[in-house]
Each structure stands twice: as structure tokens, then as C-alpha cells.
Amino acid sequence: MDSNRTGWGLLAPTLIILGVMGLLPFLYVLYISFFDWNVFSASGQMEWAGVNNFRRLVFDSAFLGSLGRTLLFTLLAVTSELILGFLLASTLLRDFPGKIVFRTIHALPLVIAPIAVGATWRLLTIPGFGLAPYYLDRWFDIDYNIGRYAEQAFFTTLAMDIWHWTPFVTLTMLAGLTAMPKEPQEQARVDGANRWQVLRFLTIPMMMPVIVTTVFIRMMDALRIVDEVFMLTGGGPGNATRYVGIYIWRVVFPQTDYGYGSAMSLLVLYFTIVLAWLLFVALAQVGNQQSSS
């Protein structure tokens, strides 16, 4: 009984902080999502709306388009970062000249604030002044203008995210690969397995916990991307890079449509949880199949 009390006493500060910083805002957002509340409305007051805000979401093609764009961005960004990060981590396991310098430089983007990353990429890509449009035009005759061409803007935001977060994936993969026992791989090679078979049947299954954790973290981050993209393109051109975070920001702040914005936030939270759960179940099944085989 005493140890129970001590346990709860030690947990209490954390639980209180979590409750105040996490649970209460969530409950408040949930509450607001059932109201029409816009500072600029004729009444300016909160008015009960029932589930109307959620019904609006289903028919809001701009929001749904934004959600789809975000999912595509997340899929491409996380996949690319995972592959690149794994390859870089594998490379960093070996010795080569300048390895430590490379590893340090490679990790630098991680310590840069997202808003600064956006500003740097804006300076790099701004039409008329940036290095990227200048050299792409001069060397390859490519008219690179992220203020005008939707595909270019989308892939530039993707490249920016990959540049920013691949080092994180590399470091987690490197930690996993370094901690992995060497004996099973040596045994497999003695038994005649080639490098691909070692990777496919040993390394990847053994790395699965690291991969799953990394994918979860990156997926949740990518789904709520705002700062860098807002700085780089503002969500444009048109709707090309108006990811769901920027969309919600515009509804909640410039439009001050708090009720509708809250409903959007909850739907995105729901999607994130569902995606994370599906991913977890799928990867767990893969892990079980591999361990049983």
C-alpha cells in the first residue's frame, strides 16, 4: 500500500503536467468542435452546432484534397528517408577517409530549427535570386519556379523534408546496426548466404523494432508539417503545398473559425492514430511471420 502511494506520488508531477498540457487542451478542442465559433460571425458568439462541423468536413473538397496531399507527402518523405537513412547508416558502419567529418556535417540539419530550414530553402530556391533556379536554368535550361509550378513546389518541399530529417533516420539506424549482434550474420555467411539474403532474412528482421519506431516518429512529424513549408511556399502555388497543418492553421487563425478548425484537428488526430495502428499491426504480423519461419 505504501509503495503504491509512493509510486503514485512520484508519478503525480508527470501526470499533472500531462493532464494540463495534453488532456485538457484535447478536451477543450473536442468541446469547441461541437460549436460554431467565429470571431467574425454576425453574432460572434459560440453557438451549438452538434456534429455539423464534422459533416462539413466530409463535403469540404479543399480540406480532403489537402489531407490527400499530406498523405502522399508523408508516404514519399518517410519512404525516401528510410531508404536513404538505412543506406547511409550502412555506409557509416565502414571506415573511409573523412568519415567523422561527413557524419558531423550530415547531422547538422537536425539541429536547425524548422523555420530556419524553410528560410534557407527559400533563399536557395526563390525565383530570380536563388542559386537553384539560376543554375538549373544555366546548366539544364530548366525553368524552375516554385511560385508558379505546382509539381516543382511539391517536390521541393519533399526534398527539403528529406534533407532535414534523413540524418535523424541515419542516426537511429546506425544505433540499431551498431547494437546488433554480429554472430548470426557471420553464421549465415559461413552457411553460404549472400549479402542480399543476409540483409533480407537477418538484418531487416533484427532491425524491425528500430525501423518501426523510426517510421512512427517520422510519420507523425510529416503528417503535421507546417513551419518549413509555410516559410518556403506559404502553401502555394494554389493548393499545391497546402498540407493539412497549413490548412488548419488558416482556418483557425486568419479565419478565426475555431469550431471548424477544431473538428479538422480531431479528424487529423484520428487519421494519425488509425494509420499508426494499421502500421503497427502490419509490421507486427510481418515480424511474427518471420520469427515463426
Binding site: A62, R148, P237, G238, N239, R242
Partner: peptide
């Protein structure tokens, strides 16, 4: 806003 942005981007 979005319609002016799309017009400037040549989408509309």
C-alpha cells in the same frame, strides 16, 4: 485567396 493563387499559377 485560393482561386487567385490558382489563377496566378495558371491552374485556373
Amino acid at each position: 485567396d485560393p482561386f487567385f493563387w490558382q489563377a496566378l499559377a495558371g491552374e485556373l
